[in-house]
Design a protein around this nucleic acid. Sequence first.
DNA 1: ACAATAATTGACTAAAACAGTAGGTTATTA
DNA 2: TAATAACCTACTGTTTTAGTCAATTATTGT
Lengths: 156, 156
Amino acid sequence: MRLTTKGRFAVTAMLDIALYEADKPVTLAGISERQSISLSYLEQLFSRLRKQGLVSSVRGPGGGYRIAKAHNEISVSDIITAVDEQIDATQCGGNENCHDEGRCMTHELWASLNNKILDYLSGVSLADMVDMQRKKGAGTVVFSPRKCGSEATIAA
Amino acid sequence: MRLTTKGRFAVTAMLDIALYEADKPVTLAGISERQSISLSYLEQLFSRLRKQGLVSSVRGPGGGYRIAKAHNEISVSDIITAVDEQIDATQCGGNENCHDEGRCMTHELWASLNNKILDYLSGVSLADMVDMQRKKGAGTVVFSPRKCGSEATIAA
DNA sequence: ACAATAATTGACTAAAACAGTAGGTTATTA
DNA sequence: TAATAACCTACTGTTTTAGTCAATTATTGT
């Protein structure tokens, strides 16, 4: 799997919908304003999220996006893998040094790390995040995805 | 923290030294050949590794690099943070939405994930990796860092 | 019917990071 | 003194990131 700010944006946007959708669906323009994410960039992200069945869309005035599943059935890893497609395909492709019996030894390290990350992120659901936010938010829902927290890019 | 193929290369190279150093230090040219990593690229990586005190160098003929500490005192996360400098500095810098009381809520998610990753990687030492490799290697030490295993890039 | 709204699509772009090259300088040894 | 090998700086091509821009399609209220 693969996670950058793209994934963070997607998670933040999904959380925004989960918090703000009630009677009406949530517009990308609204998310864009609240979360300071470019509208066009959101459009790209939601194209993927919709194709993966994580959100449903309603066109026209009063339209917008809704979360398509129960909040506890969508994990953070679902969201991330939806927007950050794996180019994972090249499993030791074209490399004669890494075959069945002689697997590169770092292989196991990274594979193992990858599982750890997946385990963690698939254990956190949208419902969990909504709960967390509601509990501490106390009225003021303030979060922004950019330049917040330590940057990291892990390849495993 | 931040981990890409650069980090993988560094870990692989360090492991190569750990496996091959005996009486003489290990040359970058040797690592380059065995692990198919560009010599100049290795030079860049080892400049960092040396400055962080993970390896010591010997110049001139018969020279090369040695691991500067006990193998069980160097963790994978040490190696990775040595070569992949954090641009982490901008902790919510210049963003009025993310302050002390109103920390962005995804913040905690990513911070938490980051800790999970760090925990894991700091728990694996160079000695562990040498052991693993010696046990299964059975004579043929074959590993290569590139195109081996699933690609992933995680930012937390 | 018509204008406003909002999703949907596709192509294009500046900046950064990644991975690597090239060419040189300095210290050490045989 | 010649070979070795670390050390250093600058440059380069490719990919990814994080957008922008412009157009189209569907829906709703008037």
